[in-house]
């Protein structure tokens, strides 16, 4: 029982990470109609910048703003130089241009940091485990969950309760109208893209100590994020949140429990191989299932 609860917490932790990425992706799509394959690169930039800052200053607290700033600035530069010119283009052009950006970012990271993965220490004040009554749980992971949920709440507040959020919502549905009312829509787009990049960078810098920081880390999680966005409904931030939690929970529980269940039916090594295959495919099967029932996702956005 405690094992199940622990794995559920792990699932939530993966879920909030996915949400941080999916929120940016779905906002950028919902508001600007752009598919951005290079969103994973911003996650990678955040992770590398934080790892570098942590190494140079020795302080995790300084690494956080470094990662956030690097991702947000990179994102805004990318928007200004490339994405801005793609708004009026079809999705194919967007895919190709952002694919080119991925190649560029990956190679630049290799040039700057080499191919070897970088390992980041969990900061001392967050290491260790805390007793949750039934079982001990790593403090760092709990912090990620808390940070993710706080970000989700802040994002909700930003979009629903502030002037900027109002413009964002209006820009998504009535672009020309907002422009006609004298709002600098290009600046708005750059800000939204930067916000998405900031969230991706936040996910990246938090992932650093859990996974190794390496080239290609962005694409791996990007494709999972696509699944989240499709399940949740394109353009819907609420959908991204629930979709991310669902995908996080399903993926983690399949990986945790399937091998044992399979071992009940067949020999150990075969069961492990098959179970790892099925659990890697699990979220994609989930996506196929959701699409069969609701082709527009669970929370269809307005886009």
């Amino acid at each position: 029982m405690t094992l199940v609860l622990e794995q559920l917490l792990n699932g939530v932790q993966l879920g909030v990470m996915l949400f941080l990425l999916a929120a940016g992706l779905t906002l950028v799509f919902g508001i600007m109609g752009v598919i951005n394959l290079a969103h994973g690169s911003l996650y990678m930039v955040g992770a590398y910048a934080a790892a570098l800052a942590a190494k140079m200053t020795g302080s995790f607290l300084l690494a956080i703003p470094a990662g956030l700033a690097a991702a947000a600035l990179t994102g805004m530069a990318v928007e200004y130089l490339v994405i801005r010119h793609l708004y009026a283009r079809d999705h194919l052009d967007q895919v190709l241009a952002t694919f080119g950006l991925i190649l560029f970012f990956n190679q630049m990271i290799i040039l700057l940091f080499g191919r070897q993965p970088i390992f980041v220490q969990i900061p001392p004040f967050l290491s260790g485990a805390i007793d949750l009554g039934l079982f001990p749980y790593p403090i760092y992971r709990l912090c990620i969950i808390a940070a993710g949920l706080l970000s989700a709440a802040a994002l909700y507040f930003l979009i629903q309760r502030t002037r900027l959020g109002m413009l964002v919502r209006a820009g998504a549905t009535h672009r020309e109208m907002v422009q006609a009312l004298g709002v600098d829509i290009r600046l708005l787009y750059t800000i939204v893209f930067g916000l998405g990049a900031l969230l991706a960078g936040f996910a990246g810098l938090m992932a650093g100590p859990l996974l190794s920081v390496q080239v290609g880390m962005g694409e791996q999680i990007l494709i999972m994020t696509f699944v989240v966005v499709v399940i949740g409904g394109l353009g819907s931030v609420a959908g991204a949140f629930w979709g991310a939690l669902l995908v996080g929970l399903v993926d983690t529980s399949l990986r945790a429990f399937l091998p044992q269940i399979m071992r009940g039916f067949m020999a150990g090594s075969e069961a492990d191989a098959l179970a790892s295959g099925i659990s890697a495919m699990g979220v994609y099967l989930l996506m196929a299932l959701v699409l069969l029932i609701k082709p527009k996702g669970l929370f269809p956005g307005h886009a």
Partner: peptide
């Protein structure tokens, strides 16, 4: 060896 760092921007330029 880092040809992708050239190919990537070339692709972007091609599209734009």
């Amino acid at each position: 060896e880092h040809w992708q760092a050239i190919l990537g921007p070339l692709l972007v330029l091609m599209v734009l």
